[in-house]
Design a protein around this nucleic acid. Structure first.
Length: 636
RNA sequence: GCCGAUGUAGCACAGGGGUAGUGCAGCUGAUUCGUAAUCAGCAGGUCAGCGGUUCAAAUCCGCUCAUCGGCUCCA
């Protein structure tokens, strides 16, 4: 047999004896590489280290440092966990166990849910098995043989998986007495699992279907080394420290109450101030961009919800009430009033586009288990707008919204991701409508110069949409802004305008929010800043602190001056030591502390201390108010 | 809605069949003090709610509600 030649990523060609493996190639290049290699890539496909080389192919050696390594390590660690579980709980049935963004999980079917003590046992067992350095070996066999094998093992879920795959051959991986159906690739041996942790346990439906059996999902995480694992765990701790639910209580922004009802936030003075600042900002920004502010009622007749289709499609999420034998629905969305405002006149093409903006408070009866602080509530306020325009105007309108989103996110300092969702199988509207709207969204995305993803078939039944997602401190993505084209509502409400040719035409409608839910946005905002809001957002911008009672009269004058100048200022004249007052202001994360002692009384000044501990030089109160105003203006 | 855990003072937590505990916060008094906690005293609870077992339940059991971690859902 002839030697085989392969091309390396740097373009060089290596020739090896027939039957050589990826590992053989690594060894031929260098002993160090052979030791660091965990997998390979042949012509673009990831393979095991002992995979045979193919003549004429391009080959790359994957080491722990390669970006692909993390997924392989985590996937192999999930197998290690499955092996540990099978050895501790032989009656457990294995299902699937993929790598995920934060680590990995494995779902098991067990009679008794795992306890926290079980998790410790599992982790200990994994350490044992890792230390044993079991060789991980790939085996290919026919699907029929694999079905037979897993059936004998009592692994019904694996049998179902193989049968659903509908292929002739499958691969399985063996380590010690454990075997799992898997495409691979995997680490060469369990000894490569060096830094992992079993983190939590949860129920999860088989194949994500709530009608099927609930399995026990064990979550874990894994990294190439202990240092990276520790860094990850430290990041989780930091995320807990900046959890908006904890900071919301500590900073006295909002609370929830059993007596009020689940999912209904009550906004304390400081939280309500924060909202107000954001809402004022939003009104200004919308007016600048040619939106009109409108206001609709909280409760609308049920007939109207029937006409819009919400009653058929969204009823189980709505609250209803009956008065004078008339049924009303509490609004879960703001579009209906906006439709009715449009319909209140005969509209000309000269009136379009119309952009109706409302800070609209909606109620949605979310299922009990999904509530999550401010990020998922049952009553929230949207910065909602509906744009009604001619088909020709659609492109420009969408572009306008995307640039609006970019401007606003820039002001708050958020990174975000954009996704386009296209026509689903079940949908209404003509092909032409869909093409035009999808084209408009896509064109605007391309124009934005930012990366975006496409979710084929993930659009709403009534039109395509762009979703914009922010990341929270735990790397969870939360949808905030969304831009949705809608073909149904103009139809159902028979919205028209008179075009230049005198004909009645149907306007195009776009639903869009920029921040989305003010509640959710504030939740993400709190975590983003860890409660250290920039001065323009801080509910309290400055606090006046006296050193002793002797300065109270002058301090009150300072307080009055600042409040008169529009500064959001508090005072703390209590008979406490300065250090104590500074500590409290610091814990409240107030940006400026204005210390008033005898020196300041004498010179008629204040000495501002920033929350990072630095001091500005003394200045008179009016000058400080101006300084603050300039700082606020610099943000937007 | 589903799986699991949790629910004790405003907050953070301890206790685990027989007067309900600590720290911080609160109140009162003393201290008049210069950049992250001055000292002392006092007060504060239907132990989430309802029902059951028991001579006796915060504690054991059941149901409900809420919260937490996931799943599912998210026009």
């Amino acid at each position: 047999m002839a030697d085989i030649s392969v091309t390396l990523p740097d373009g060089s060609v290596r020739t090896l004896p027939p039957g050589s493996t990826v590992h053989g190639l690594a060894a031929a290049i260098g002993a160090g590489l052979a030791k660091a290699a965990i997998a390979g890539r042949i012509d673009g496909s990831l393979v095991d280290l002992d995979a045979k080389l193919v003549d004429g192919s391009r080959v790359e050696i994957i080491t722990e440092k390669s970006p692909e390594a993390l997924e392989i390590i985590r996937h192999s660690t999930s197998h290690l966990m499955a092996q540990a579980v099978k050895s501790l709980f032989p009656e457990a049935k294995v299902t699937i166990g993929p790598a995920i963004e934060t680590g990995f999980y494995y779902d098991f079917d067990v009679d008794h849910p795992f306890t926290p003590e079980d998790l410790e046992k599992i982790e200990k067992k994994m350490e044992e098995l890792a230390k044993a350095g079991l060789k991980i070996e790939r085996q290919e066999l026919s699907s029929a043989d694999a079905v037979k094998l897993f059936r004998e093992m009592g692994e019904d879920y694996k049998v179902e998986l193989i049968e659903d795959l509908g292929v002739d051959h499958v691969s399985l991986y063996r380590q010690g007495d454990f075997a799992d159906l898997c495409r691979g690739p995997h680490l060469p041996s369990t000894s490569w699992c060096k830094a992992f942790k079993v983190t939590s346990i949860a129920g999860a439906y088989w194949r994500g279907d709530e009608k099927r059996k609930m399995l026990q999902r064990v979550y874990g995480t894994a990294f190439p080394d202990k240092k990276q694992l520790d860094e990850y765990l430290a990041r989780i701790e930091e995320a807990k420290r900046r959890d908006h639910r904890k900071l919301g209580r500590e900073l006295d922004l909002f609370s929830f109450s059993d007596e009020v009802g689940a999912g209904f936030a009550i906004w304390h003075p400081k939280g309500a101030m924060l909202r107000t600042v954001i809402e004022d900002f939003e009104r200004r920004e919308h007016l600048k961009r040619g939106y009109d502010i409108v206001v609709g009622p909280q409760v609308l007749k049920t007939e109207l919800w029937q006409r819009s289709g919400h009653y058929d499609n969204y009823r189980e999420n709505m609250y209803f009430t009956e008065v004078d034998e008339q049924s009303f629905g509490i609004k879960p969305m703001n579009c209906l009033s906006h439709m009715m405002i449009y319909k209140s006149h005969l509209r000309s093409y000269r009136d379009l586009p119309l952009r109706f903006f409302e800070l609209g408070t909606v109620h949605r009866h979310e299922r009990a288990g999904v509530l999550h602080g401010l990020l998922r509530v049952r009553c929230f306020t949207q910065d909602d707008a509906h744009i009604l325009c001619t088909p020709e105007q659609l492109d420009a309108e969408i572009k306008g919204v995307i640039s609006f989103v970019q401007d606003v996110m820039g002001v708050f300092g958020f990174e975000f991701e954009m996704e386009l969702s296209t026509r689903p199988e079940k949908s209404i509207g003509s092909d032409e409508d869909w093409e035009r709207a999808t084209g408009a969204l896509l064109g605007a995305l391309k124009d934005s110069g930012r990366p975006y993803e496409i979710n084929e078939g993930d659009g709403a039944f009534y039109g395509p949409k762009i979703d914009i997602k922010l990341r929270d401190s735990l790397d969870r993505r939360w949808q905030c802004a969304t831009i949705q084209c809608d073909f149904t509502l103009p139809e159902r409400f028979d919205l028209t305008y008179i075009d230049a040719d005198g004909e009645k035409k149907r306007p195009v409608m776009v639903h869009r929010v920029i921040l989305g839910s003010i509640e959710r946005f504030i939740g993400v905002l709190i975590e983003h800043f860890a409660g250290n809001f920039p001065v323009w957002l801080s509910p309290v911008q400055a606090v006046v602190l006296t050193v002793t009672d002797n300065q109270a009269t002058y301090a009150q004058q300072v307080f009055d001056t600042l409040r008169g100048a529009g500064v959001r200022v508090q005072k703390d004249f209590r008979n406490e030591k300065l250090g104590f007052k500074i500590r409290e202001a610091q814990l409240q994360k107030i940006p400026y502390m204005l210390v008033i002692g005898d020196k300041e009384v004498e010179s008629g000044t204040v000495t501002p201390r920033f929350r990072d501990g630095s001091n500005l030089s003394p200045m008179d109160p009016a000058a400080f108010a101006e300084y603050l105003a300039r700082e606020v203006a610099s943000f937007h």
